[in-house]
Write a protein that binds this DNA or RNA. Sequence first.
DNA 1: TTTCATGTAACAATACATGTTGCGTGATGG
DNA 2: CCATCACGCAACATGTATTGTTACATGAAA
Lengths: 158, 158
Amino acid sequence: MYCYMKRDSRLSGVLHVLLHMAEQPGPHTSETLALAMNTNPVVVRRIMAGLREQGFLRSQKGHGGGWTIACDFSRTTLRDIYEALGEPEILAMGNRTETPGCLVEQAVNAALGSAFDAAEAMLLTRFGEVTLADLSADFHVRMAGHTTPPTLENEHGA
Amino acid sequence: MYCYMKRDSRLSGVLHVLLHMAEQPGPHTSETLALAMNTNPVVVRRIMAGLREQGFLRSQKGHGGGWTIACDFSRTTLRDIYEALGEPEILAMGNRTETPGCLVEQAVNAALGSAFDAAEAMLLTRFGEVTLADLSADFHVRMAGHTTPPTLENEHGA
DNA sequence: TTTCATGTAACAATACATGTTGCGTGATGG
DNA sequence: CCATCACGCAACATGTATTGTTACATGAAA
């Protein structure tokens, strides 16, 4: 099932999966997580490899293996996760030329560039202010009032 | 010469061209402008069509035809131009699902979405604060000290 | 009426992200 | 010791958007 995404949703997807993992103990296989991300196991491993390298996750092979959370949710921010993903491009727009000789273009680049940089910096700052624990807490607030606790299985048609 | 750009540089390119046009009177052909944008005439027309529809530019066919500025630089902001381009996507990232049933994903979307919206809003605000006249003025400041005034021809290898 | 320039549609080429397959590696359990 | 399970990784396939390119119609000026 090919489904081209206009905007990169890896951060969104990985956060989703991390919160789900926190709700249930034990290792989670790539296959299980793939269902929650509507993708396949290889893509999951690809995306989560960076988180493992940065020590936010652990993975284990063989029987009973899978992915385990290895970080403190209250000390891990969205920015940490963003960086572990390899700092994907934030803006879809940019300057035509990085170091133009043309003075006109230098003026354009200066104006646009500073605006772009400010927007990026602002987003990263906000990311740095939100921890995974914050997200999880928000989730639990939303869950208050609901009867059946959502799991990877019943919410994502596994 | 195929040259795929990772980030959309139409705004950057169009601003560049507009400032150049302001430096020299008379209509400018798509072909001339294409040289400054390192592309070809059809692409130029495509990009500038929106600016014509919004009344920022006029175009004329036939002998002596071409593109003419039809707006007041001191009253036209980068945001106006951005909108005339069709409001291209600003962010390269986004939420995986817009209206998820999963409460976990709702929590993720809320956090990420508000950050995304804030960044976009900030960029648009900054765009709205800069006029084409500001850019042009900055260009003229940069030009002080340089001997040969840059034209479409001598700066872009026409 | 010839030339020039835009307007537009259709088509081609490219880059990229994602999906997919296959095989290697290590760990577990019988 | 062997079968199974799950990750690791590389290679390949597919789908999509963007950009470049070609072709032709339209209208204006010399």
